[in-house]
Amino acid sequence: MISVRHLKKSFGDLEVLKDINVDIKQKEVVVVIGPSGSGKSTFLRCLNLIESVTDGTVTIDGEELTDKKVDINKLRAEVGMVFQQFNLFPHKTVLENITLPIVTVKKWSKQDAEKKAKDLLQKVGLLDKAKVYPESLSGGQKQRVAIARALGMEPKVMLFDEPTSALDPEMVGEVLGVMKQLAEEGMTMVVVTHEMGFAKEVGDRVIFMDEGYVVEENEPKQLFDNPQHDRTKAFLSKVL
């Protein structure tokens, strides 16, 4: 599904991603963990080219994103992304947040888009909030709307960039609940998170990154109970 080869990313002289090679299968839930500054968010942002790639290739479902000739907007529409800071459009209602990309990018009619949006709001439990503006929602509700908005494009893959890090603790559960449901429905997901419980419970595989490299990857149980590398051990001893 996703194939990353020799991915490198630099910001000026700072090399953030040094040589990343990762394969992600369809319906797989991959959780990326690592200390801050390890490059895990940058890695995720390279998977839909929100961050430009310095070198290497990213291929999703047979199409190479990093190829200069591809229509990047079309490919991005097939990769959903959920951000730490939600990034809902504050001047649009909850419903409009979801319908806007469906109407402008997928070119659906307004009625069809609204029907789709309402189905999605139902799914994340926020149908009663359709007409309100994002500012009146709690953090957890905002993030669920953001997930619904991304799902509106019917993506093949969903990327989550620390989706619960900006939330009050009591709201983390409702967002993780929606993500878990998505995973059970067979969505291919790449999740950057500090929620080790989620990684253990929902993840098919955990990738540990440090200093721009993938240090270790394994099934959650193996990686958490029996880490092979010293750096993984040191990190896990701090967070678990």
Partner: peptide
């Protein structure tokens, strides 16, 4: 983050600006 979110949904530069 506003432009990033809009681009991540597949909107082109013009649509991001306009909407």
């Amino acid at each position: 983050g506003q432009a990033e979110a809009a681009h991540s949904l597949g909107m082109n530069k013009f649509q991001v600006m306009r909407h």
